[in-house]
Design a protein around this nucleic acid. Structure first.
Length: 313
DNA sequence: CCGCAGGACACTG
DNA sequence: CAGTGTCCTGCG
């Protein structure tokens, strides 16, 4: 039995980890692999509709119910901010996603925003996934690598994924050709897994559209690397505003001086900052990241990081 | 019409 | 290598 105290669906499904759940009348509907599931709370007890026998177990796995939540919360309760955030977002959990869907989702996330990502993933599913009917509604499974690899780039572009279309197709093709890649990462250390995903393994790039940030998301959300600490522009702001001491105040200043925030963080800076944060939060740093990320998004406007100083005139 | 949003990549020096 | 510009799309 899962209780709302252990799993807060709103926090978890709105935290920006996943992009395919919809809420209507206090019922969350989503697709786990090829099963359509409806979730709601009845007097603090999670109620599951859809799926067949065994669905409860899959739900537990999906929401990582078997993680020792209390112990993890204690381990990442490192400071005043975390203490507040952990209390306010009680019941937020990491989700154990399918690596392939996760990969495509975060390729789509580059230089984009959540509503747009939701749109892209939905378009891809509608066009290339399998239809799932339920209670008069139509949903779709996420398309397999084979379906995407076989797709025309033009057809992918029609799903509004933009310049990511060739990346998505190329990555699907790579995964078809190297089916064990995810399981190899699973059996690797964090750094080993990172190296494989970004293509440093044999010095050659295998997966297109996957840099360190996307790789961190894949590692954290689908490949059991709970120390992974993805750093997007929001997280960078949060770090600069709250954890400059952790990554080095002089270093923060040097970052600002370089004013490199117009594009992505240079890989070397990304590696350094995420390493510091992993060291600071420990082996469940990824949980801390997710709490901080959702917190910062809920808080909304943070002080934007200054870009190139405009030539005032 | 411009700036920007959960970065990656190709291209210079 | 390290530092820039560009990339499709949607929205304020």
């Amino acid at each position: 039995m899962i209780k709302s105290h252990d799993l807060n669906l709103d926090h978890t499904l709105l935290s920006g980890q996943v992009f395919r759940w919809k809420k209507k009348n206090d019922v969350w509907t989503g697709v786990i692999e090829k099963t359509l599931v409806r979730l709601s709370y009845d007097h603090d007890v999670l109620e599951v509709r859809g799926g067949e026998r065994g669905i409860e177990k899959r739900i537990r796995r999906y929401f990582r119910i078997d993680d020792s939540y209390e112990s993890i919360m204690r381990s990442i309760n490192t400071d005043r901010l975390m203490s507040t955030v952990l209390r306010n977002l009680r019941g937020l959990r990491l989700i154990r996603q399918d690596p392939w869907e996760c990969t495509v989702s975060y390729i789509c996330a580059t230089n984009s925003n959540i509503p747009s990502i939701v749109n892209m993933i939905e378009n891809l599913s509608r066009r290339f996934g399998e239809q799932l009917e339920s209670e008069g509604e139509t949903f779709h499974s996420f398309p397999s690598p084979a379906r995407i690899a076989a797709a025309d780039v033009h057809a992918l572009t029609e799903c509004k994924v933009g310049y990511r279309a060739p990346f998505i197709k190329a990555t699907a093709t790579s995964i078809l050709k190297d089916e064990t890649i995810f399981s190899r990462v699973l059996n690797e250390s964090y750094q080993g897994g990172m190296d494989i995903l970004v293509g440093k393994e044999l010095g050659k790039k295998t997966l297109a559209g996957i840099g360190p940030k996307v790789a961190d998301c894949i590692l954290l959300f689908s490949l059991e690397k709970m120390q992974a600490f993805p750093i997007d522009t929001w997280m960078l702001r949060t770090i600069v505003n709250n954890y400059s001491v952790v990554i080095g105040e002089e270093y923060v200043l040097s970052l600002g001086a370089k004013s490199q925030f117009g594009s992505s963080l240079p890989p070397r800076d990304y590696a350094r900052i995420s390493m510091k944060m992993r060291q600071y939060f420990g082996r469940f740093a990824g949980y801390a990241q997710e709490f901080l990320y959702y917190h910062s998004r809920k808080e909304g406007k943070l002080i934007p990081i200054q870009k190139k100083s405009p030539l005032s005139g």
